[in-house]
Structures are given as structure tokens and as C-alpha cells.
């Protein structure tokens, strides 16, 4: 239990938040993620390029993370407005002949991918931390806040615990994503064993009286 609230920006700005493992975002897909309390649509074009935007279509507010990707364009699921990787609206299907107004643009965050991890940042200054040769395993959500987990696990970007290397992504409402990495070169059986350890860790955190 902690009584002193920790501000997430404490320590080292600029902030990059790990939001997904590269392996979990295939080409031509979009997913919802949350960074610093902001809901974002994270998506990858068919070419592999990434974008992270406010998860809200400027037209009628539909979550863009529910949209679909054709080539390097994301289309909103509601009326099909189509946006390029820069967030610029390029097509409004209700008016096929119309060149969309340049002002129709979705606010974007910076996004970068390194050693199998996707990071986002509102300002985009600096570079995300280097996780070296560690191999991304899987991400899982714990029903405990980042602060509560850090009180238990300690600070630092990559936290070593129980043979796993953990990146923390705090979510609203007292939840936190653990992005688990392992040492390099694990075979399939080793990966499964590590995944089962991660599951056990979550159970321990959620059952623990000390982590509220």
C-alpha cells in the first residue's frame, strides 16, 4: 500500500510509453491502446509503417481503432472516411468526387518501433529506451495500478523479476499492462514456460494483500 501518490512524469522526461509488441500488430491492422490516459488508435499499414492517433474520427466521433486498413490508409468503420499515414483525410465515400478539405486531419502522436516493441510519445522528443537483445514474449493486463506494481517491483524502465523482464504501461482505473521480454534465443517450449510464469505472476499480484 502506498500513501504518497507518484506522478508518472517523475524521473526522466521525455516520456515514451510501450503500448504493444511488434508481433501483436500485423500489417494492415488497427488496435486501441492507452498512453498517459489518452486513448489512441495504433495501426500499421500494409507496408509495415505505423501511426498512432487520437482514437476518434473527426466526422462523428467513431473510434478509429475499430476501422480497417487497405494499403497504407485507415478507413473509419462508420462512414468509411479514409486517412493516410499522416492523419490527413483523403476520401469521403459519401462524396466520391470531392477532394476532402485539408483541415480534416486526426491529431497524431509520435510512434516508433525498436527491438520488437512499439512505443508512443505525445511530444516525440528523444528516443525510447533501448531494451537491447531481450526478446519480446507477450503482453498481459493486470488489475493493479502501475504505482502499486512499482512499489512492489521497483522503479526502472525494464524490471527484472522472476526471470522475466517487464515493461510497465499504466492504464486508467487501476490497471497496468505488463510487456514481458525474455533473454534471447528461447525455443517454443521455453517461451510457453515463460508465459506460464507470467500468468502465475499476475495471479500472485492480483491475489496479494500488499499490492492494492
Amino acid at each position: 500500500m502506498t500513501d504518497t501518490p507518484r506522478t508518472p512524469s517523475q524521473g526522466t522526461p521525455p516520456q515514451w510509453t510501450p503500448v504493444a509488441l511488434s508481433r501483436d500488430l500485423a500489417p494492415a491492422t488497427a488496435i486501441p491502446v492507452i498512453a498517459e490516459g489518452t486513448e489512441l488508435a495504433l495501426w500499421r499499414g500494409r507496408s509495415g509503417r505505423l501511426a498512432a492517433w487520437h482514437d476518434r474520427c473527426p466526422h462523428r466521433g467513431m473510434r478509429l481503432s475499430q476501422g480497417f486498413v487497405r494499403d497504407d490508409m485507415l478507413s473509419c468503420l462508420y462512414h468509411g472516411w479514409r486517412y493516410d499515414l499522416e492523419g490527413q483525410c483523403r476520401k469521403i465515400p459519401a462524396h466520391p468526387e470531392l477532394e476532402p478539405n485539408k483541415a480534416i486531419c486526426v491529431p497524431a502522436w509520435s510512434v516508433t518501433e525498436a527491438t520488437g516493441i512499439i512505443w508512443v510519445s505525445e511530444t516525440g522528443s528523444g528516443a525510447p529506451p533501448d531494451t537491447g537483445a531481450l526478446a519480446p514474449l507477450r503482453s498481459l493486463t493486470v488489475e493493479r495500478s502501475e504505482d502499486a506494481l512499482r512499489d512492489h517491483l521497483g522503479d526502472g524502465v525494464v524490471i527484472e523479476f522472476d526471470g522475466l523482464h517487464l515493461l510497465l504501461q499504466g492504464l486508467p482505473q487501476g490497471r497496468c499492462v505488463l510487456h514481458a521480454l525474455t533473454g534471447p534465443g528461447l525455443d517454443a517450449a521455453g517461451q510457453r514456460a515463460a508465459s506460464h510464469r507470467l500468468e502465475a505472476l499476475r495471479t500472485r499480484f492480483e491475489d496479494s494483500e500488499d499490492i492494492a
Binding site: E39, P58, G61, M62, L98
Partner: peptide, 22 residues
């Protein structure tokens, strides 16, 4: 669709959302 519109409330002031002729 309706459960995925943000914000849940309907914005009545122009400028919050961008309509077209449709």
C-alpha cells in the same frame, strides 16, 4: 457503432465534429 462514439454525448456546438453535405 453507437457504443464506440466518443464522446458518448452528442456535441451540439458546430466545430466539435465535421459534417458534410451528406
Amino acid at each position: 457503432i453507437l457504443e464506440n462514439q466518443v464522446p458518448a454525448l452528442l456535441p451540439l456546438d458546430p466545430g466539435k465534429e465535421i459534417p458534410t453535405r451528406a
